[in-house]
């Protein structure tokens, strides 16, 4: 599963709103954070959020270990699931 966490402050909330437009993406809460999850990729278009750069590049609070940011630029944020080695496997 892909999981991305964003702190709920006024300038970040458009990111969660835009992410939630994808029917494959769920937006829940953990305390004051948006927990944005999906079975597949999470893609957020920066221009759709209206976020300017200072906010855009500092809005991600956390990315779960089984997820990875593969794109975070002026166009989009894209987080994809990664296959973790099975427990006990050599790293």
């Amino acid at each position: 599963m892909t999981a991305l966490y964003v702190l709920d402050v006024p300038e970040n909330s458009p990111l969660a709103t835009v992410a939630a437009r994808d029917p494959e993406v769920r937006v829940d809460r953990i305390g004051p954070y948006f927990a944005i999850t999906a079975d597949g990729p999470i893609v957020v278009d920066r221009r759709a959020t209206g976020c300017r750069h200072a906010v855009w590049y500092s809005a991600v609070a956390g990315v779960a270990r089984d997820s990875r940011i593969v794109q975070h630029d002026k166009d989009a944020l894209r987080v994809e699931p990664v296959a973790l080695p099975p427990a006990g496997a050599p790293s």
Binding site: Y5, G31, A35, A61, G62, V63
Partner: peptide, 19 residues
């Protein structure tokens, strides 16, 4: 930075719900 965000995700899950 990637390791920071991964560790922070764990702390959010552990600690933010009860905040």
């Amino acid at each position: 930075f990637g390791k920071l965000l991964a560790r922070k995700a764990e702390l959010i899950v552990e600690r933010a719900a009860d905040w």
